[in-house]
Computed example of a mutant assay.
Amino acid sequence: MKKISLLAIMVLFVSVMACKKDKKENTETETTETTEMAEPAVVETKTEEVKKIKVALNPKSGSNVSGNAVFREENGTVQFTAIMSGLEPGNHAIHLHETADCSSDDGTSTGGHWNPTAQPHGKWGDEAGYHKGDIGNFYADENGNGTATLSTDEWCIGCGDPAKDIIGKAIIVHQGVDDFTSQPSGAAGARISCAGVIE
């Protein structure tokens, strides 16, 4: 009788231990699986480098015209935006000139229009030809505020291509309107604001 009781107790003890071990293994397996599922997937993404230059436009030729211009290059395209104030209401020309030197009072230290491909002056995109600096005209409202924009793949920021690179050029705002035909500058009048594009 004692042998049977002792045997029964041993069987019961082994069964309980086996259950505990099985339960522990299941818990460890579940924990491991949860941990593995929680690990984030590694995703490689390639982003195109974005280049950006912001410059201040300063008054020239006795004007009060000032503002800021931004060049932003992404995916091979440069977006240009210039925001100005202190203008006479109406249309005005804006160009890139060949030298980033705004030291003269009248802005003539910037030289002529940037024209690395030796084309005639004209309207941007014209089949007859145009300078790489021929941005065009923009409108100033009754408060003297104006915005000029251009988007192009014919410019770059710091790429080193002399036919495309805007580094070392100047932005000039003119008093008058570009007529797109007069050579070599479109008869746009005095240079009333200037900014050097320096990286």
Rank of each mutant, 00 (worst) to 15 (best):
2 K>A: 15
3 K>H: 12
7 L>P: 08
9 I>S: 13
11 V>A: 15
14 V>I: 15
15 S>A: 15
16 V>G: 12
16 V>M: 15
18 A>E: 14
20 K>G: 13
24 K>A: 13
31 T>A: 13
31 T>L: 13
32 T>N: 13
39 E>V: 15
39 E>R: 15
41 A>D: 09
46 K>S: 13
49 E>R: 09
49 E>G: 08
51 K>L: 11
59 P>E: 08
63 S>L: 11
65 V>P: 00
71 F>R: 03
73 E>M: 02
78 V>W: 03
81 T>D: 06
81 T>K: 09
82 A>L: 05
83 I>Q: 11
85 S>Q: 15
87 L>G: 04
88 E>L: 10
89 P>R: 02
89 P>F: 05
92 H>L: 08
96 L>K: 05
105 D>N: 10
106 D>S: 11
108 T>S: 12
110 T>W: 03
112 G>V: 01
113 H>W: 00
114 W>G: 00
116 P>Y: 00
116 P>R: 01
117 T>M: 07
120 P>G: 02
122 G>I: 01
124 W>I: 01
127 E>Q: 10
127 E>T: 10
129 G>Y: 06
131 H>T: 01
131 H>C: 08
132 K>S: 10
136 G>A: 06
140 A>E: 03
142 E>L: 14
143 N>L: 11
145 N>H: 14
149 T>P: 09
153 D>K: 14
155 W>F: 07
162 P>S: 07
163 A>C: 05
165 D>T: 00
165 D>A: 02
165 D>W: 00
171 I>S: 05
172 I>P: 00
177 V>H: 03
178 D>S: 08
178 D>Q: 00
179 D>N: 12
185 S>Y: 06
186 G>A: 04
189 G>P: 05
190 A>G: 09
195 A>I: 01
196 G>Y: 00
199 E>T: 01
